[in-house]
Design a binder for these strands. Structure first.
Lengths: 206, 206
DNA sequence: ACATTTTGTATTGTATACAAAAACTTTTAT
DNA sequence: ATAAAAGTTTTTGTATACAATACAAAATGT
């Protein structure tokens, strides 16, 4: 999909992605004011495409009032509350509708989660949740989920990096509930899983 | 806050609102291609602010690929599925946390819903759902809800205009469940209420 | 010393011009 | 007549200039 490092992208797309990545990996610190002209100079562009990038980042919630967000504890809580709703619902759908092919993909995510490198684990963690979210079959919900990804990323980083215990065991149990078409359990386990993520994050940031 | 009809809004804010309203009330037909220069001429502005307006409408889902959306049956279903999730959850919170003041406001919405003019009914219908949504106390969810408003509006119009039966009765029962702090019932009733809305809309558009 | 106005500077908002790309037409070859 | 190619027009993307606004600092009066 987006894997091809296609150079035929427009300037504002490129600068958007570059800016987003810089925010996500901390190159641009939280709270920094984004000044159009400065960034334009830095990227060797005019203000016009930079402007659009910033607007998009604002829509995503990564920029508020021209400043890079400072994520607070309540942002964390709010994000996970919404995730529990969306992904809980999606897990339920997955238990009913998920294809054989996607079941195998899920299983592989669990396996790699046990044996992979740190980067691989982060990768399959993301994939695990994506596969389930897409099972909702509701493009609107998927879109909301996608919009949250950047913010989620900032947190997920900590979760995996600090090796949260039982993370993969929880994935495994969710996977099994989905495979068994047990929708109530799948939803329940997904919500508990996200709650555990939240608790772990909260524990870390204090 | 925003009640003051302040004329100190920027050009792109004004053109955004104007465009949105034109789409919502059908002045601009669904499927119409939005051409920046044409609109700029029409509004006596340059392309720059128009561009921003269109981008924002795209984020809201009212414009796709430079064309005004044609809402399909599955858009309708997807929207209501997400609403059930968000507003069901909010109704639950409302049953637990809603203030006396907001309870009174809710009650008034039900009353005006029985006795008001068509415009008043549409107004309080919106307010009823807003009060409950805000009880979620989750700005992120409220934001998602707000973003859906334009699309919801297009549908709500039909629902009230064609006098869906039992609409106010359902509001009344939801209100009573909230007042009684019965969160399970409140959530359940809200979901049923939205499902009934959906069914009514589906019935109409066929 | 404190509040208030004035001035200057930084930053965003808007208009305009031109280049690149996309969408349409017409022409040409099969 | 149809499909490909070339050309034409429309539309979008980007750069730049200037105007309006917001912000901070200095100056002025109390």
């Amino acid at each position: 999909m987006q894997g091809s490092p296609n150079k035929a992208r427009t300037a504002h797309q490129q600068s958007y992605e570059a800016l987003r990545d810089m925010i996500l990996n901390g190159t641009i610190a939280q709270g920094t004011k984004l000044v159009e002209e400065k960034l334009a100079a830095e990227f060797n562009l005019s203000r016009t495409p930079i402007r659009e990038s910033i607007r998009k980042l604002e829509q995503e919630g990564l920029v508020v009032n021209k400043r890079v967000v400072k994520l607070s504890e309540s942002d964390l809580r709010n994000t996970f509350e919404l995730r529990k709703l969306l992904e809980g619902h999606a897990a339920r759908s997955a238990a009913i509708y998920l294809s054989e092919k996607d079941l195998l993909r899920l299983e592989r995510c669990v396996e790699v989660g046990r044996s992979g490198t740190l980067n691989e684990i982060m990768e399959v963690n993301k994939e695990f949740h994506e596969i389930i979210m897409h099972a909702s079959n509701n493009p609107l919900m998927i879109d909301v989920f996608d919009r949250m990804q950047s913010v989620i990323y900032l947190f997920r980083h900590t979760v995996v990096y600090y090796h949260r215990p039982f993370l993969i065991d929880e994935h495994q149990r969710i996977f099994e509930a989905i495979r068994a078409h047990d929708s109530d359990t799948a939803e329940q386990l997904m919500k508990e899983h996200l709650q555990a993520d939240l608790d772990f994050c909260l524990h870390l940031i204090r």
